[in-house]
Simulated scan of single mutants.
Amino acid sequence: MPAPLFVRFRSATANARGVQVGVFALANGLARAGRLSADEYALWRRSNDWFEAAYAEPTLADPAVYDRAVHPGAVAWFKLTAVELIQKTTLYTELLDAHQVAWERVETADPGRIVHEDDVQVVAVPWRVAT
């Protein structure tokens, strides 16, 4: 079996569309629902701002990268070489833990059909839905 090249931090269970959403979306949901304390919210906001400044959003390169009709089930995977990005993700997992939101870390050598790639991540359509 090939060594893992990618990591994803995602919900422990699938949503209604069958997708295990990433921890950024889960934390954003807590913020939108007003479930974060003032301190947690400030930390979450600063962290989101940092990520937005440090890393390009895949939709800037391809607005359709997450389009369900074009790339059904597409999700982002971090490259294991993106050490800083992975370390900074800890803030989100800690927020989820504090609010009893189940998440998991998964690693793979083959995330699916890659539809976007940059220095730190890929967006891939899982093989079970890839066409």
Rank of each mutant, 00 (worst) to 15 (best):
M1T: 11
P2A: 13
P2C: 05
L5C: 11
L5E: 15
R10P: 07
S11I: 02
S11F: 07
S11A: 15
A12H: 11
A12V: 02
T13M: 10
T13W: 12
A14Q: 12
A14T: 11
N15P: 06
N15V: 00
N15I: 00
N15E: 04
V19N: 11
V19H: 10
V19A: 09
V21L: 12
G22Y: 03
G22P: 09
G22A: 05
V23R: 00
F24M: 09
A25S: 13
L26W: 02
A27I: 02
A27K: 01
N28A: 15
N28C: 10
G29E: 05
A31S: 14
A31P: 08
R32D: 15
R32P: 07
A33H: 09
G34P: 11
G34K: 03
R35G: 06
L36A: 06
S37R: 01
A38T: 13
A38R: 14
D39H: 12
E40F: 08
Y41M: 12
A42P: 09
W44S: 01
W44E: 06
S47Y: 06
N48T: 09
N48F: 05
N48D: 10
D49S: 13
W50V: 01
W50C: 03
F51N: 05
A53N: 13
A53G: 14
A54N: 07
Y55H: 10
A56T: 15
E57T: 02
L60R: 13
A61K: 07
D62A: 09
D62N: 14
D62R: 03
P63E: 04
A64F: 11
V65D: 09
D67P: 06
R68N: 13
R68M: 10
H71S: 04
G73A: 00
G73N: 00
A76Q: 09
W77T: 05
W77Y: 12
K79G: 05
K79M: 05
L80G: 07
L80N: 04
T81M: 01
V83E: 14
E84L: 12
L85S: 10
L85K: 10
I86W: 03
K88V: 08
K88Q: 15
T89L: 03
T90C: 05
T90V: 12
L91K: 00
L91D: 02
Y92A: 11
T93E: 04
T93H: 03
E94K: 09
E94I: 09
D97Y: 09
A98Q: 15
A98N: 15
H99L: 07
Q100V: 12
V101R: 06
W103M: 00
R105M: 12
R105C: 10
V106K: 02
V106R: 07
E107P: 07
E107W: 02
T108H: 03
T108S: 08
T108Y: 04
D110G: 09
D110H: 11
I114R: 06
I114W: 03
H116P: 10
H116N: 12
Q121A: 08
V122A: 07
V123A: 06
P126I: 06
P126N: 04
W127Y: 11
R128A: 15
A130T: 01
T131S: 15
T131K: 14
